[in-house]
Amino acid sequence: MRRLLILLCVFVSLSVAAEPLSEYQLKAGFAYNIAAYTEWPATDRRNFNFCTLNEENVGLGLAQFEGKQLHGRRLVIARLTSLVAIRQCQVLYIGEREAANLPHILKQLGDESVLTISDASQVTAVCVRLALDGERLVFDINLEHCQQARLMPGSNLMRLARVVTKP
C-alpha cells in the first residue's frame, strides 16, 4: 500500500497545469469556432443545442463551452447516442461510428437548419468536414449541404477552409 502512495505522489508532483491539445479538444475547438462563424436563419429558441452523435470524446471536449453565449443564445452540449432528438440540434457532430448511417441521418434531419460536421474519412455529404492534413487539422466546406440547411458559413471560414465545394 505504501508503494502505491509513493507512486501516486510522484505522479502528482510531476503533473503540470497545461499541455498540448488533444485531438478531441482540437476537434471540439474547431467545431465551436465553425459554429460561431456560421449564420443561422432567425429563430426564437432560447438554447443553442450543440450535439455530438456517438462521439463521446469530442462531446467531452465540448463540455467546457457549456453555458457560453453563442449567437445570443445559451450553449447546451448534448452527447447523443440515437437519432431521436437530432432535429432539436443546431450543430450535429457525427462521429466515425455513425458514418455508415449518414444517409439515414440526413433523411431524418430533412430541411432543419442543422450544421452537420464530421471527421469520418468516408463522409462527404455534410456541411463541414474535418480532416487530417499532415500533422494539422483542416476543414473542408461543402456549400451544397450548408445551403440545404439554409446555413451561411462566414467569409473567414471560406478563407480558412482547405477546400470549398460550390454547388
Binding site: 499541455e19 491539445l21 488533444s22 482540437l26 469556432n33
Partner: peptide, 22 residues
C-alpha cells in the same frame, strides 16, 4: 509542456489551426 493554463474557448480558429496536437 510548461505553458500557463489556457482556455480552449479563448483560442481563435487561426490559432487552433497552428496548434500542436497529440
Amino acid at each position: 509542456a510548461a505553458d500557463d493554463k489556457e482556455n480552449l474557448a479563448d483560442l481563435s480558429l487561426e490559432q487552433l489551426m497552428q496548434r500542436e496536437v497529440v
